[in-house]
Simulated scan of single mutants.
Amino acid sequence: MSKPAPPPPDPQIADGPAGKVGLILSAARHLFLEQGYGNTSMDGVAKRAGVSKATLYVHFESKERLFAEVIDGARSRLREALVTITGNEQIDPAETLRLIGQQFLRFVTTQEVLTLFRAVIGETQRFPELGQTIFQAGSSDMLTLITDSIAQASARGTLRVENPKQAAAQFIALTKSDLHLRCLLEPSFQANEADIQRNVDAAVAVFMSHYGPRPR
């Protein structure tokens, strides 16, 4: 029995302003999710996208760069949400952190993102530069957004933080706790909203107990 034909690239992307770049990214995303990083070839991406290899290499010089762009595209909505949250200085810092934690944890526990995470973890032995590239493709700017928000709250006196960047990294680690690892290692397990809220509430409580303003 022949295998069913793979789904075409997303029409929303194909018809968008990105044109061929959108087609390429959509095709690459499908293949990385279906086959993993190691089994996906630039030839396969070009064929799936319906473009020539020359066109593919004009926009993406390597598979590593293409994978980084797929990861960054997945992160874009999270980044936009964090920009909105951290841009509102009127919100209590505990509530700001709660909103950040909810958006972040919902993102990293989606099936698509978990599959991409597994692809990175599974290939770092053969492609040691991959993990660093993926980290740089989006983690640093999200960490910067959270760092700046914590620094601003500290400047207003609503937090007491000497090293905002370290505190931001600690908050991300507290938010993920063991929930993210369980989702990675148990594909049959799916975090629900109650799991996410419980993790985030605990992370905010621990963070504020250490970095919150001293009681008068």
Results as ranks from 00 to 15, higher is better:
Gly22Glu: 14
Ser2Ala: 11
Gly87Ser: 13
Ser139Pro: 08
Ser140Phe: 06
Ile121Phe: 15
Thr40Trp: 08
Leu159Arg: 13
Phe189Glu: 14
Met1Arg: 07
Gly157Arg: 12
Gly212Ser: 10
Val21Met: 03
Gly16Glu: 08
Gln90Ser: 06
Leu25Asn: 05
Pro9Cys: 14
Val70Pro: 00
Thr144Pro: 04
Asp72Asn: 12
Ile13Lys: 09
Pro93Ala: 11
Asp201Lys: 01
Ala27Cys: 06
Asn199Leu: 00
Leu105Lys: 04
Asp72Thr: 10
Glu186His: 05
Gly87Cys: 12
Ala153Tyr: 14
Ser149Arg: 10
Lys63Arg: 06
Ile134Glu: 02
Glu123Thr: 09
Ser188Glu: 08
Gly157Cys: 12
Gln132Ile: 13
Val108Leu: 01
Val206Pro: 00
Val58Trp: 07
Arg118Asn: 04
Ala54Pro: 05
Thr55Arg: 10
Glu69Gly: 05
Ser52Gly: 11
Phe117Lys: 05
Phe67Tyr: 09
Leu114Met: 02
Ala202Lys: 00
Thr84Leu: 11
Arg65Asp: 09
Thr40Arg: 02
Ile172Lys: 03
Val113Phe: 02
Glu34Val: 10
Ile172Cys: 09
Gly73Thr: 07
His30Ala: 09
Gln152Glu: 02
Ala168Lys: 03
Pro128Met: 09
Glu123Gly: 13
Gly138His: 15
Gly19Asp: 12
Gly36Ile: 05
Ile134Ser: 01
Gly101Leu: 03
Glu95His: 14
Leu105Cys: 08
Ile100Glu: 11
Phe117Gly: 02
Ala203Gly: 06
Leu159Lys: 13
Gln111Asn: 04
Leu181Cys: 03
Arg75Glu: 05
Lys176Ile: 00
